[in-house]
Design a protein around this nucleic acid. Structure first.
Length: 896
DNA sequence: TCATTCACG
DNA sequence: ACGTACGTGAATGAG
């Protein structure tokens, strides 16, 4: 029977793997200092390309590392000379590559005096002779000379993630020659990477033309005299010897004496123990996770049936019962989890829930009438049992929907994992648990993803999954808390993030009332304007096209109309606002396009978008504030995003008229921190000049302008000077660069540079701090806020200038943005407590980074203003006073 | 699913 | 020389 033989060119593929992931070189390092980028890519290759092939035999051939040179070196002294030596970061990965090959069930082979090509060439002919099917995988086109009807070459593309399949037909179609002719093609062109010449001035095009005419090298030289005189003819004659030498160098040996045969290279498939061992050594968290969950093997349907058994480290999950509740209710600590069918827990179906601990065991159920049971209510609502959960905010809302309150939460694994390390946090229990070495089937495996989402038919599968979640959460607490403690983040968790999650849950559940009729009316008016703009644009363009398509718009503006190209994107011409504004004076159509864009955005995102998420039951939008997403500690808001409702233009700002209080006679009240980020900066740097400006409550941008332009203290500042100074202040907060400032202000880079230099002279402590924080980031690999919120910067020591510079700017910006986030979070908790303590009816509705929005009875307005302002400006004791401004009115429009 | 654009702080 | 301002989310077109 015909067998499938897989022969892999180890050197060329490892080399490609290394350079494919070269940008990642600096971040892929084990704690022991071993670079792993090539290993990661090579492992992906073995998993995604080799594993599914399921060959009968498999071998990875390597170039001889030491010993005698190959015959090619004897033939031509400069063979492979001048080739860059493999970098040390690559070489150190070699031994592990071989270990990896073995763990994946393949064999390694190398032999003194041979290159990998020759080993593959020889074995391919042996396999062919035995009537087997041979597949060669390589990154080197040379090997395609081996192709026959029984020998296929898969040439790696895009690093090692894809392959192109070379068959005799493919080569004929692509190059118009046979596989054997590839050798003579090489003879004519030579090979720059192996450093041997062919015929002068003959490249791929010429070589193919010659081969089509003369078929091979011998025949070509037999007829070379008949060629009409030309430079090429001269070159062919002069370089004849070189061409024949190149032919020999390019020819892969197919009859080498090897010390192994086909019987020695049987493929056994991946070996779990070996892989686990290797992955642990290399700190391959993801690969381990995949392995433990058995998806690696499931991919090829190998041991799918066994996977359930092997999952194994979990206790049995029991169906919940009343007698179980009697035992559970006596426990001090229990893990608790409700499983939903979708991300948006305000509306998602609740599928099942689980509860338990290691002593009493784990219980699951799909029967939500259990929540009428007093014992279960006592557990989740009371203060006796401390709960361990994954996402307290979500569970608060879910219980709220069931008519219950969430009682005492001790451990929220999601929050803790986020505080410990924001990088790569995907908010998914299975992956976060994997970081702590606990492996759990992912939701995707149990339910499928996207449109394929289905709840398992068998109840037991579902109950087991939710039960295992509870057990995982329960078991993570000690390790997670001790890590928190080590980071000095217990206060941040216990006194800020965890209480905040309850405040946010209440805000989300409360919702923001929307005046749908008003929004619909605005929508109609916009539609009319959009339609007429559209017609005008078509008329001016002389044709109809999709104005929303940047591609079509680019073609019109830059090709048909011939306007100058200001900026390009990866995929074509940029048509962004700043570009169109520069073009506006040249073509009147551009103004219309800008107006169209603005209206189209408002209509689709804010009118239609908002209307589509209003809950018809209460005419409210219920956003979700993502508390564990941003890298800086800010919140974000989704479904809908209430943190980017228009403000800067009047047309957009009108949208805010549709955000109204939920009761008649109530008002919307907004309070915002003035210049909080600059105040934070002044406070943590202790800069006297800046401190003075804030203590005296000066206009900070005007004050900055006086410093930067060297003006006396009470000098008047013109609007342009103030605008420039404001941009400089922004730049400082973002981690300034002259390039960025010059682009923002549309001024020469030199000028921007001199602004920055003057700024740093005038505010010396800020300059000093910027240096210190970068230094610390380089040393520690992370930076911190005033409340010890941490941001890791994996790129801070990158070799690439851009990558590293980005990390350095982040190092300067994150403590500022993050500390401001700390402050408003603390204020939110305190405001919420104050409202409750005073028995006020007011509701906090939205947080927009430096601003809080409330609704309250008109009669409560004065008290609310007083309370909120006081709590906000005294939330945290800083060296610089915090300033709060507030507004109120019948809608959100007036409250800012 | 990715890239672009634009809304906010 | 290098070529980016910091942090987000939603809609759209195009592959």
């Amino acid at each position: 029977m015909s067998k499938k033989i897989l022969l892999i060119d180890g050197n060329s593929l490892a080399f490609r793997a290394f350079y494919a992931m070269y940008q990642q070189l600096d971040r892929m390092v084990t704690p022991e200092g071993l670079h792993t980028n090539a290993l990661v890519a090579f492992n992906n290759f073995l998993e995604s390309i080799v594993l599914p092939m399921q060959p009968d035999m498999g071998l990875v051939a390597w170039d001889a590392q030491s010993g005698r040179e190959t015959f090619r070196g004897d033939l031509y002294a400069d063979y492979k000379a001048g080739r860059d030596k493999a970098p040390a970061e690559f070489k150190e990965q070699f031994p592990y590559l071989r270990e990896m090959v073995e763990a994946h069930g393949l064999h390694n082979y190398e032999q003194v005096g041979l290159e990998a090509d020759d080993i593959i060439g020889t074995l391919s002919r042996i396999g062919q002779a035995a009537g087997d099917q041979v597949i060669i995988i390589t990154g080197d086109q040379d090997l395609t000379q081996l192709v026959t009807d029984d020998v296929t070459v898969k040439l790696a593309k895009k690093g090692v993630s894809q392959v192109e399949v070379y068959t005799p037909d493919f080569i004929m179609n692509e190059f118009g020659i046979t596989p054997e002719q590839i050798i003579d093609k090489k003879a004519l062109t030579g090979d720059t990477s192996d450093n041997y010449p062919g015929v002068t001035k003959v490249g791929e095009k010429t070589a193919l033309k010659l081969l089509k005419q003369y078929h091979d090298l011998d025949n070509l030289y037999a007829h070379v005299d008949e060629m009409k005189p030309s430079k090429m003819k001269e070159n062919l004659i002069n370089d004849k010897e070189q061409a024949y030498r190149a032919q020999k160098l390019a020819t892969i040996i197919t009859d080498a004496k090897l010390s192994i045969g086909l019987k020695d290279i049987t493929y056994n498939g991946p070996e779990e123990k070996g892989l686990v061992n290797l992955f642990e050594k290399l700190h391959f968290k993801q690969a381990l996770n995949k392995l433990r969950a058995h998806t690696l093997f499931d991919d090829v349907g190998q041991i799918a049936e066994e996977s359930e058994k092997k999952q194994g480290d979990f206790q049995t999950v029991h169906p919940l019962s009343k007698s179980a509740l009697e035992r559970l209710v006596k426990e001090d600590y229990l893990a608790f989890h409700i499983e939903t069918s979708g991300e948006n827990y305000h509306q998602a179906d609740m599928l099942a829930f689980s509860i338990g601990n290691d002593e009493v065991g784990y219980y699951g159920s799909r029967d939500f009438t259990f929540f009428d049971n007093d014992l279960l209510r006592q557990i989740v609502e009371g203060s006796q049992t401390k709960l361990r959960v994954f996402n307290a905010k979500e569970h608060w809302v879910l219980l709220h929907r069931l008519g219950l309150t969430l009682g005492a939460v001790d451990f929220d694994f999601l929050l803790v994992a986020y505080l410990l390390d924001t990088v790569g946090n995907d908010n998914v229990l299975s992956t976060l648990a994997g970081r702590f070495g606990r492996y759990l089937a992912s939701d995707e495996e149990v339910y499928g993803k996207g449109a394929k989402f289905t709840v398992p038919e068998e109840e037991k599968v579902l109950i087991d999954h939710v039960g295992h979640k509870a057990e995982t959460i329960f078991g993570l607490r000690d390790q997670a808390f001790s890590d928190l403690d080590e980071h000095e983040q217990s206060h941040l968790y216990r006194d800020i993030e965890l209480p905040l999650s309850f405040v946010l849950a209440k805000m989300e559940a409360q919702g923001f009332k929307v005046n749908e009729a008003r929004l619909e009316k605005m929508g109609q008016e916009m539609d009319e304007q959009i339609a007429s703009l559209k017609q005008e644009i078509y008329q001016m363009a002389g044709e109809e096209f999709n104005i929303n398509s940047t591609k079509q718009l680019g073609t019109l503006l830059f090709e048909k109309m011939g306007l100058p190209v200001i900026k390009k994107t990866k995929t074509g011409y940029s048509t962004a606002v700043e570009v169109l504004e520069k073009l506006a004076p040249e073509a009147p159509i551009v103004e219309h396009i800008l107006a169209y864009r603005q209206l189209a955005k408002l209509k689709s995102t804010y009118v239609d978008g908002l209307l589509s998420v209003v809950n018809p039951a209460d005419q409210k939008v219920h956003t979700r504030f993502l508390q564990t997403l941003t890298q800086t500690g800010r919140l974000s808001s989704v479904d809908p995003n209430l943190q980017n409702i228009p403000m800067r233009t009047e047309a957009g700002r009108k949208i805010r008229h549709a955000f109204v209080p939920s009761h008649d006679g109530w008002q919307i009240f907004g309070a915002d921190y003035s210049q909080i980020e600059l105040r934070v900066l002044a406070s943590i740097t202790g800069d006297p000049a800046m401190e003075h400006a804030f203590v005296e409550d000066e206009d900070i941008h005007a004050e900055t302008a006086r410093k930067v332009f060297g003006l006396p203290e009470d000098a008047p500042i013109d609007p342009d000077q103030r605008r420039t100074a404001k941009a400089v202040n922004f730049g400082i907060v973002y981690g300034i660069s002259d390039y960025g400032l010059s682009k923002n202000l549309n001024i020469p880079r030199k000028e921007a540079k001199s602004f920055i230099e003057t700024y740093f002279r005038e505010f010396p402590r800020i300059h000093q701090w910027m240096g210190q924080i970068k230094e610390r980031a380089h040393k520690d690999g992370f930076v911190e806020t005033i409340e010890h919120r941490r941001r890791y910067l994996p790129d801070i020591n990158a070799k690439n200038f851009n990558t590293r510079s980005f990390a350095e700017r982040t190092a300067m910006n994150s403590p500022i943005q993050g500390s401001a986030a700390d402050i408003i979070k603390i204020a939110m908790i305190k405001v919420s407590q104050a409202i409750e303590a005073k028995g006020m009816a007011a509701n906090m509705l939205v947080q927009v980074h430096d601003e809080l929005v409330f609704e309250c009875p008109e009669s409560e307005l004065d008290e609310l203003r007083d309370t909120v302002t006081k709590v906000m400006d005294s939330a945290v004791k800083l060296a610089i006073p915090l300033k709060v401004e507030s507004h109120s009115g019948p809608t959100w429009y007036e409250a800012k």
